[in-house]
């Protein structure tokens, strides 16, 4: 049984190469391939700046974290960025434990992440 995760996409007015993606549910080894394919498709379609809204992301394990690091690396290689906003305390703690807070662009609020694109 695959863990439940839903990705909800939104455009941001005035930003042609940016996609806002809401992550809803749990990100783990059972659904990481599906999520990876969807995000990589966005990057390949020219949406090289992705803002990930983690407000409704309850859970991430190490496989999910590895994928987030991969998104960040791939976006940078395309001269873009993978920014994370609204992260919850539990998910942040896991990123912190593996020492990856400096490897990911993490913002408290969505507005801050959008503003950082300017």
């Amino acid at each position: 049984m695959e863990s439940q995760i839903e990705l909800i996409y939104e455009d941001i007015k005035g930003k042609h190469n940016v996609k806002l993606v809401q992550f809803v549910g749990d990100l783990d080894a059972t659904n990481v391939e599906t999520v990876s394919e969807k995000i990589c498709n966005l990057l390949n379609e020219g949406y090289v700046n992705i803002i990930a809204d983690f407000k409704k992301l309850r859970y991430v394990n190490s496989t999910g974290l590895g994928t987030l690091l991969h998104f960040s690396k791939t976006a940078k290689e395309k001269n873009g960025s993978f920014k994370i906003a609204n992260i919850n305390e539990n998910v942040y703690e896991i990123i912190e434990i593996i020492g990856a807070t400096s490897l990911l662009e993490i913002y408290d609020e969505l507005e801050e992440a959008i503003k950082a694109l300017d």
Binding site: N61, I97, I98, L103
Partner: peptide
């Protein structure tokens, strides 16, 4: 021995988390 997430983003992260928790 702790792993370096910058060098190895796919292997060893899970056990590092278990070790820390």
């Amino acid at each position: 021995q702790p792993i370096d997430p910058e060098k190895d983003i796919q292997h060893g992260l899970g056990l590092e988390i278990v070790r820390m928790l």
